[in-house]
Computed example of a mutant assay.
Amino acid sequence: MSQSMTMLFAFLESSGFWAPFVFLLFHSIRQFLFIPVAVLCVIGGILFGTILGTIYSLTGLTISCILFYFLYQSMPKLFNKIHRMKDKWIGNRLSFTPGQIALLRCIPFMQYNLLSLILLERKKNLFSYTKQSFLTNIPVAVLYTLFGQSISRLSPTLIIIILCSMTIMFYMLREKQIYMKWKEFFPEKAA
């Protein structure tokens, strides 16, 4: 995998004027090539700098989400595996807020398309889904573009502090709902 990422980096670097367009293309087809989001954002930060790398990564991630939307609308049975993963990991009752989805997208081992599916179930039409996708992609694009190069040099203590603070933020951003069954609310009278 390291060799293929090196080849990707070299290819993008040698693209010259076309590098931003090739970078956006890689972001768009990233999910089919099994390239992690974090890797492309880090490469964008190295090649284009912080500001342009963030803009290109954010644009590419949003294009990727729009592509996911159209593929899901046209071939819903193809996404049964993602639905099964969602049912297994999350269940049907739990729903995430956009803030929670934005935080989960920053975690490298979270399945990006699973989070896109959760967002798609919250926002059914294209405009609101695209808007929420754009907003939830901002933290991941900024985080990995800014700190992607130095993430491997962080101390284990700092990594634990970051994960704990993200867990606390995840809990604080939750949707506050109470599910109560009919029998719990209206208990049956003893005979």
Rank of each mutant, 00 (worst) to 15 (best):
V22P: 00
F26H: 05
K123L: 00
T157W: 09
R122Q: 15
S64N: 15
H83G: 08
S116C: 11
L104F: 08
S155I: 00
G99M: 08
K181E: 09
L12V: 07
K86L: 10
I63S: 04
F127Q: 05
T157G: 08
S28R: 00
F9W: 12
N113L: 12
N113V: 09
T6L: 14
L25P: 01
Y129S: 03
A191L: 12
A141N: 05
N137L: 07
E184S: 11
L146R: 03
S28I: 04
Q149M: 12
N113A: 14
I35K: 06
P108N: 00
Q111H: 10
F32N: 10
T167W: 14
L94G: 06
V142Y: 04
I29V: 15
S155C: 03
L163Y: 12
M5K: 05
L52M: 10
V140H: 02
R93I: 09
T136Q: 04
L163A: 15
Y179S: 07
S128Q: 14
L126G: 11
F9H: 14
I168H: 04
L33E: 08
R153K: 15
Y72E: 12
L94P: 03
I55M: 09
T62W: 05
F109S: 09
M180I: 15
G60Y: 00
P76R: 10
E13G: 13
Q100K: 09
P139G: 12
F26E: 01
A10C: 09
W18Q: 11
K131W: 10
S116R: 03
L71A: 13
A141H: 00
S150A: 14
W18L: 13
N80Y: 12
P108V: 00
Q149N: 15
I107L: 15
S155F: 00
G44I: 07
L61G: 02
I107K: 07
L12N: 03
D87W: 10
R174H: 12
P108E: 01
W18F: 13
T54N: 08
G53L: 06
G49S: 15
K181Y: 06
T50P: 13
S4T: 10
L71K: 14
